[in-house]
Design a protein around this nucleic acid. Sequence first.
DNA 1: CTGAAAGCGCTAACAG
DNA 2: CTGTTAGCGCTTTCAG
Lengths: 326, 326
Amino acid sequence: MTTVGRMAGVSQVTVSRALSDPSKVSPETLARIHEAIRATGYVPNALAGALASRRSNLIAALVPSFTNIVYSSLLHGFSEIMRENGYQIMLSETGHDPEREQALVEALLSRRPDGVLLTGVHHAPGTRRMLIGSGIPVVEIWDISETPIDCCVGFSHAATGQAAAEFAVKAGYRRAATVTAGDARAIRRRDSFVQSFQRMTGAEVPAVDFQPGTATLAQGRAALVELLDRQGFIGGVVFCSSDQFAHGLLTEAAARGLRVPDQIAVIGFGDQDFAAHTHPALTTIRVDRAVLGEAAAGALLSRFGEGVPGPSVVDVGFQLIQRGSA
Amino acid sequence: MTTVGRMAGVSQVTVSRALSDPSKVSPETLARIHEAIRATGYVPNALAGALASRRSNLIAALVPSFTNIVYSSLLHGFSEIMRENGYQIMLSETGHDPEREQALVEALLSRRPDGVLLTGVHHAPGTRRMLIGSGIPVVEIWDISETPIDCCVGFSHAATGQAAAEFAVKAGYRRAATVTAGDARAIRRRDSFVQSFQRMTGAEVPAVDFQPGTATLAQGRAALVELLDRQGFIGGVVFCSSDQFAHGLLTEAAARGLRVPDQIAVIGFGDQDFAAHTHPALTTIRVDRAVLGEAAAGALLSRFGEGVPGPSVVDVGFQLIQRGSA
DNA sequence: CTGAAAGCGCTAACAG
DNA sequence: CTGTTAGCGCTTTCAG
C-alpha cells in the first residue's frame, strides 16, 4: 500500500481510503491510485484490515454434513446473500456430534468471525457459553427454540410430525409405521407423529431406526423389507424422516410389485427435487430451504447494522404436500 | 495475551510460545499460563497470528455448487484432512461461471489463504494469472491437465466416455443416445462417448441436452420422454452425464412399463449411493470421490512442507460398474 | 481532501 | 527456558 501510494504520489493512508471509501478521495487522486494498483498488481491484505478494524467480514457456519442436500441447499441461499454483502463463509461439518461442534466453535472463534451460523438449537453447554461470551451474533437454523443463543430461524419439528399424523388419519389410514434416522430432530418428528397417531387411533406404530448420518435409498429399501417381512406391516402408511428413505420404500415396493398407496403408503420429509417425480409421486413435508437460508442471512445482517435487530425467533413453517404416495 | 502473561507472572511472548510450541516452556510455567487462560477466558486472535507469521491456516475452496453431491462429497474428504491438520476452509460456489470464479479468487486472495482448491482445469485467464502471481499452492480437482496452474488431481473425462462406449458395444448395443448437462466436463464425456460409439458402429447418436446446473431426476424422466416420443429411440443404451438423469430414465421406464435393459438400457455417471439400489440397479461410472478429495488435501499439504512436493498431476482413474441397467 | 501518528494482537528474530 | 525489540499491513483518530 505504501508502494502504491508512492507511485501515485500520495501517502499510504490515502490509498487505504481510496479502497475502503472512494468518496473521501478526489477523483484525480483516485484515478492515479487505481493506475498504480494495476501497475503493481497490488492485492490488499484483508487479514491486516480485519486486525485493525476489528471486522473480519468472515462468517463461521457449522452444519452436520455437506453431503446432505437439506443442509447444502440451506447454505446455498445463505452464502449467496452473505457473499453479496461482502462476507466469506468458513464452513465446517459437525457430523451430528456436539463435542466436535464445540471444538470447531472454539477454533473458529479465534478467527474472529463477525457472525456464526449453527444448525439446530441444542448444543454442548460449553458451546453456548463461548458463543454468548464472545458477543458475536449467532443464528441457529433448522429448528426453533424459545431460548436461542441469539436468534433462530427454523420451524417446529414436532408440528411436522403432528401434521403428518393428522393428514394420515384424515386420509383414512388406521395403521402406521415410521422409518427414522437417528438424529435428534428426526426423532422429534417421529415421536410427535407416533404420539398424535396413537392418540387418534389407538394403534401400535412399528418403527425402523437408523444411526444418524445421511439417509440413503438403500436404507429405505431395507426398512421396507424389515417392515414387511419381519414386522408383518402392510396396508398402512409409513412416515419417513427423509425423502431418501421414502424413495427407497417406493423402490422396494415397485420391485415387489406392491401397489402404492393401497398396500403401502409413504410420507417423506424434505420435498427434495425428485419427490414430485418418483413413481408414484411422493407425499412429503416441504420446508422452503432457500428462504430459510436467506432469512438466516438476513437475521445476521440485521444484527451487524446498528439498527433494531429483527425478531429473534423466526418460524418459517412447513407445508404437507399431498401427491400420489399417500 | 499480555493480561494472561501478567496473571501467570510471565511476559506476553511466553504465553505465545506456550500456545504455539508448549515444549519451549517449562511445565510449571505452562500450568500457570493455562490456569490464567482459563481464569480470563482468553481466546487467541488467529488474525493477528496470521498477520505476524504470514501463515493464515486458511484454505480457499471453490466448487461449482454445494448442492451437487459430486462436489460436496469431494469436499467432505478434503475438509476432513485439512481440518485434522489445523486448516479452516473458506468455501464458495462458482455456479459454473468462470467470471464469477475469477471475482471470487480475487476476493479470496486478499485473505491470504495458504492454499487454494479449484474445480476443473479451465479457468478465466485472469484467474490463472492471479493465482500464479500469488505464489500460493493451488490444486485443481475433478479433471486432469498437462499444464495445471500448480498441481491437479482428477481423471480423464474423455476416457470415461470412451470406456462407456466400448462397454456398450461389447455388450451388444448397436443404438445409443446421450443425456447431458451443459457443463464442460459432461460435454467432454458425451463427445468422447459419441465419437467412440460411432467409430465402432457407424450409428447416429441422438442427444438430449440440458443447461449446466444440478441434474435432476425430473430432467431424466423428461429426457426419456423426448427420446421415446419425439426421437423414436428405443432398444438401445442411453449414456447419461449423471446418475440423477439415469435414475429419472429408469423411473420413466418403470412408469411406462418398459423392460430395462431390453427396451431401454441406461448408463449413469457418478455411482451415487442410490445407484446400486435402483430397480434395476444402475450400471454406472465410479470415481472415488472421497479418495480424490483426500488426495487433493494431501497434494496441498505436501506443498506446504519444505520437502519434495508430490507429482503435480495425479490421475485417480475411474471404474465402469456393470449392474442391471445396461 | 490529505497526512502523521498510533496501534490492532500476535510472531520472529536475537539476546541472555 | 525466558525476555526484549521490531515489525506484519492495515484502519483510526486527530490535524491541517
